[in-house]
């Protein structure tokens, strides 16, 4: 049986994202974690078939919850909701470009921050305030994660042969026109 190249790509990108997200600490300049796992999950949601995207989001959510000390299915449920939104937006205008992907991850990071706090039930005034401050910091963190995630995942997809160069109407690849 021929190996579906999506499997190693999904596994490798999620592993690298988990490692980076786990190792890079929050700093005074950016006091939130950079959500590489969410960025990679969103990339696969935008570019892969349904089953591959669902598997990627389950793995990404499961690892985020397991390594972050969060309750089971906290992040998975967020990513499932995000997948629904992504499929809807894809019908209208959303494409897997670097700019759109980066903006998408930044928006998702803000919603995920509020979602996680709401799931944990931190409803005291100071906790709500902290959640809003964290959501503010999630924008630059999301931009960094989105840019890195979409650029690297796109590169790996091209290297592994999952993503083919776009053909022109006459059937000649753009990549072959320079030769």
């Amino acid at each position: 049986m021929r190996l579906d190249m999506n499997l190693p790509v999904v596994a490798f990108t999620l592993f690298a994202a988990a490692l980076l997200q786990d190792m890079i600490p929050a700093t005074p300049a950016l006091p939130v974690k950079i959500g590489f796992l969410t960025a990679v999950a969103l990339y696969h949601m935008l570019t892969k078939p349904v089953l591959v995207a669902l598997t990627a989001l389950v793995w990404a959510g499961g690892v985020t919850d397991a390594l972050g000390g969060l309750p089971a299915f906290c992040t998975i449920s967020f990513l499932l909701a995000a997948y629904g939104a992504v499929r809807l937006l894809k019908r209208m205008f959303l494409e897997a470009t670097l700019v759109q992907g980066t903006l998408l991850v930044a928006c998702a990071a803000v919603v995920q921050t509020v979602w996680t706090r709401a799931w944990l039930g931190l409803s005291e005034p100071a906790s709500v305030w902290h959640a809003l401050v964290a959501a503010g910091y999630a924008v630059p963190a999301g931009l960094v994660a989105g840019c890195a995630g979409f650029a690297v995942c796109g590169l790996i997809d091209r290297v592994s042969g999952n993503k083919k160069p776009v053909k022109e109407a006459n059937g000649i690849l753009w990549a072959e026109t320079d030769r």
Binding site: Q21, D22, P25, A26, K33, T64, G68, G69, T116, L120
Partner: peptide, 13 residues
């Protein structure tokens, strides 16, 4: 120490 906060910054771990 090999990781600060895991994948989430919610808890101090």
């Amino acid at each position: 120490v090999i990781s600060r906060g895991g994948t989430s910054e919610v808890w101090q771990r």
